[in-house]
Amino acid sequence: MLKFVADLFKPTDPKAPPITSETGMTFDSIEVAPFLTRLMNNPRFGLPISTAGMVADQLSDIALDQTRRWTIQGAFDGTMTTIDIEAFMDAINAPEITFYGTEAVVAEIDRELIAFDEAQET
Rank of each mutant, 00 (worst) to 15 (best):
G24H: 00
V55W: 01
T26W: 01
M40W: 05
D77P: 00
D61V: 06
T82S: 09
S29A: 13
A87I: 09
L64D: 05
W70L: 11
L36R: 01
I72L: 02
A52Y: 01
M80A: 10
R68D: 12
I30L: 12
A56N: 13
Q58Y: 08
M89D: 08
G53N: 12
P95D: 02
I72M: 01
D61Y: 07
F45N: 02
T37K: 14
Q73F: 11
Q73L: 09
T26A: 10
T71S: 13
S29Q: 14
F35Q: 04
L59P: 05
P43T: 10
S29G: 12
T37P: 01
F76I: 01
G46R: 04
Y100H: 15
I62S: 10
L64V: 08
F35V: 07
D65Y: 09
P95V: 04
A87D: 04
A87H: 06
L47T: 08
F88Q: 07
L47M: 15
T67V: 15
D84W: 05
G24A: 02
S60A: 13
G46M: 09
G74E: 01
I49S: 13
D57E: 14
F45Y: 12
A33M: 09
D28T: 08
P48I: 03
G46Q: 12
I92E: 12
E96M: 07
G46Y: 05
L39E: 07
L64Q: 10
S60V: 11
T26I: 14
I85Y: 02
T37D: 09
E96A: 12
I30E: 13
F88W: 12
T37S: 12
M89R: 10
L39H: 07
N41V: 04
F99Q: 00
G101M: 03
P95F: 03
F76H: 03
I85L: 14
Q58A: 08
G24P: 00
A33P: 00
N42G: 05
P34V: 06
G78C: 05
A33E: 13
E86W: 03
L64K: 09
T67M: 14
R44C: 10
A56Q: 15
M80R: 15
D84R: 15
P48S: 05
M54K: 10
D57K: 14
M54Q: 10
L39V: 08
M80S: 11
T81N: 04
I92F: 13
I97K: 00
F35T: 05
